[in-house]
Structure formats: C-alpha cells, structure tokens
Design a protein around this nucleic acid. Structure first.
Lengths: 202, 202
DNA sequence: CATACAGTGGACTGTCAAGTCCAATCCGGT
DNA sequence: ACCGGATTGGACTTGACAGTCCACTGTATG
C-alpha cells in the first residue's frame, strides 16, 4: 500500500497544496517529462520524503497537477458562467487574447500542453483531460442554448457542435500563437469562430 | 568544432537518413524529452558513435527531426498543391479525418506536438515550426486567392486570414481528437471551418 | 506530560541518460 | 596493393533521476 493521497490533518494539507501548486507551475512551464521531482522539491521548498508522503509516485503527482491545471484554467475564465449574449462571448474572447498578449504568446494552453504529453500514454490522465474540455465547452453550449431559446440563434443551430468547433478554434489559435509567438493568431481564430456562430443568427 | 552535419559521401548519407527517420518515428510517437538517444540508436540499428558522428548533440538531432516531421506532414497532404475549389478543400478535409480514424485518434498533429515541447524553449526550433505552418497555410491562402479571382469568393474575403483560421480549426480539432480519442472532433472543427469559408461566397 | 502518529529532513541506492574516446573497419582514389 | 579519410562498434565516464529508508520533530489528545 504505497502512501497515496491520504486525507490529511491541518498543516499537512497546506504542504500538499503547496506541492501541487509548485508542481503545476513548473510542469505547465516546462512540461511533464522535463520536470524532475527535484525541481518540484525545490520549487515547493519541501523535502524528498514529503513528496512521497503525499503522492505514491511521479504519475500520481502528475495527475494531481492535471486536475489543478484544469481547475486553474477554468477558474481563470469567470466569464464562462454567463455566456448568453454575443457581447459576452466577444468579451470573453477579448480577455483570452489579452492573456496571450500579456504572456508574450508564451505557454500556449496549459491543458493542451498536457494533452500532447499525456493523452496517448496515460489513460487516467486522458479521461481527466477529456473531462476538462467537457467542463470548458458545456457552459458555452448552455449559453448558446439559452440564446436560441431567446430567439438570438436559429432553431437549426446546433449549440453543442458550435461549442466544440469554437473550442477547437481556441485551442488551435493557441497552438499557432505559441508556434508563431504572435497573439494575433488567437485573435484571428476567435474572430472566425465568432463569425461562424453569428452566421446562425435568425 | 563539434561534428555537425557534415556533407556526407555515399553510404554515410544513408546512415544519416536512417537515423533521422528512426528518430522522427520515435519522437513523434513518444515526445522529445521522453525519447533517449539509446531509443534512437536501437530503432535505427546504429552505434552511439554514429549518432555523434552525424549530429553534434541531441538538440541538433531534434532539429533534424523537426525538419523531417514538417516535410513528412506536408508531404502526406498532396492535396495542398491544388486547393482551388470547394470540392477540393472538402476532399482534403475528408482525408485528414480519415487519417485520424485510421490511427484511432492517437497522436494528434506531429507538428503541434513539437510546438508544445519546443516552441517556448528552443528558438531555432520555434523558427522552423513557424516556417512549417507558413508552408502549410500558404497553399490554402493561394487557393482561396485563385477562387476569389475566379469569382467564387467575395472581394472582401481575406484569403490569408481565412487560411490562418482554418489552420487553427484543424490544429484545435486535432487537439480535441487526441484528448477525447474521437476523430469526430476534427470533423466538427473542419465542418465549421469550411462553413466559415463558404460564408464568403458571392 | 505522555504518547502515538502525522509530518519532516536528507542521506543513500540503483538505474539510466548524455556525451567521450579510441581502436577497428570500410572504401575510393592512386 | 596501399593510403587516408570516412565510417563504425562499443566500452567508458559523469552526472542526474526516481524512489527508499530511517531517524527526528511537531502536535493533538488523553
């Protein structure tokens, strides 16, 4: 029975959270395989035994990082909760582009980065990542449904498909942004996604 | 003066090509950092000294792999040369989806995978990858220009932007395909991209 | 204040990776 | 046949890395 993520008492919980936060920061920046446990150990100001006290092994820690990354990305987009007008969708897109400008187009999408490294080889991580995308596109799909119900979208529009296509434009826009180090790539992708959605106005 | 990629004579060139081909296969499948030179050595049936005879170090080999990957991906899409009708674009998209079905949605986009691992940290690789995307979208942009010249596209359509947005949909569709292990994700993304382009018909 | 256990520090081990080195072999030109 | 550089084989060095181990400390509770 390897020391998995036992429920903790008091200060131990803080340590565990510090480890996950530090590991997430390092892994999102440098990648899963390029990050060593010693990098995490140093970044979290923690000893080796603590890592193994709270996580069974590196894979276990990585899965906690996957969960934290998804929560972090979605948590950074409060607009998701209220996407029920063209203006709100547009403002949401603007903020996504602004983040890329601020980061000088470095980093891409943290979730997308994990997909490339984990989806094919770690089944558990793949399920978590797929769940992350579901949590990402569902609010948009629901928003589009509300807009359709209010007559802002034609009856024959398919909110779920539109949401998926929009998420794809976003992810791809981020890949191009990272590759070209140019946030305008995301702008172009999201402009097209918005135009496509708006083409379903009544 | 480290033994870089000296111009080779006869059989040496074959060895070098064998190394690059094997390294490309392994790296595209498992990732750059997860691939060891010993993996490459074994896959190419080559000795350690040969790797260092033809490449200065791992980074040097990786850059050759980046070039080979770009050539491979673009070479696998002969349709790129002739994209001057909606039918041809649609057929091109169909073949991209077919590849994902065949691969059971495993692997994503080889170029996109390299972007995630290299774009932020290896400037030379970033330039190569950006060049790869340029070579990818240029034929589409030219095709759309020809279509515009022939009156199949409105004058106010912007072929370059449409090509970029389409490439983004494709890349993002591949990310979602890989994350969800479902080639339909690429289908949805490319359907939307096609609809967006077609919305500029006269 | 005792004591039991969660939490902590850090040395240690086994394995494996990148990169070096040099002797052996191949092969085109003379 | 012989020379010299290109090519090759593989042992070796050095430095990480993941994971183990055990002694020590804090603290919550009786």
């Amino acid at each position: 029975m390897p020391a998995a993520d036992a429920p903790i008492t008091s200060r131990g919980r803080a340590t565990r959270e510090r480890i996950v936060a530090a590991a997430t920061e390092v892994i999102v920046r440098r990648g899963v395989t390029a990050t060593t446990l010693d990098d995490v150990r140093a970044a979290a100001s923690v000893s080796k035994s603590q890592l193994y006290h709270y996580f069974a092994d590196k894979d276990d820690l990585v899965r906690a990082v996957v969960a934290a990354t998804i929560d972090g990305v979605l948590g950074g987009q409060p607009q998701l909760a209220e996407l029920s007008s063209w203006r709100m969708i547009s403002a949401w897109f603007d903020s996504l582009v602004a983040v890329q400008v601020e980061r000088h187009a470095i980093g891409g999408c943290p979730i997308g980065g994990l997909v490339g490294e984990l989806a094919d080889h770690d089944d558990k991580a793949q399920v978590m990542l797929a769940g992350g995308y579901a949590r990402w596109e569902a609010p948009l799909a629901r928003g589009l449904e509300r807009m359709r119900a209010r007559g802002r979208l034609r009856r024959d529009a398919n909110p779920a498909r539109l949401a998926t296509a929009t998420l794809a434009s976003m992810q791809g826009g981020l890949v191009l942004t990272q590759a070209r180090r140019d946030p305008e790539q995301l702008r172009i992708a999201l402009d097209a996604a918005l135009a496509h959605m708006r083409s379903f106005r009544p």
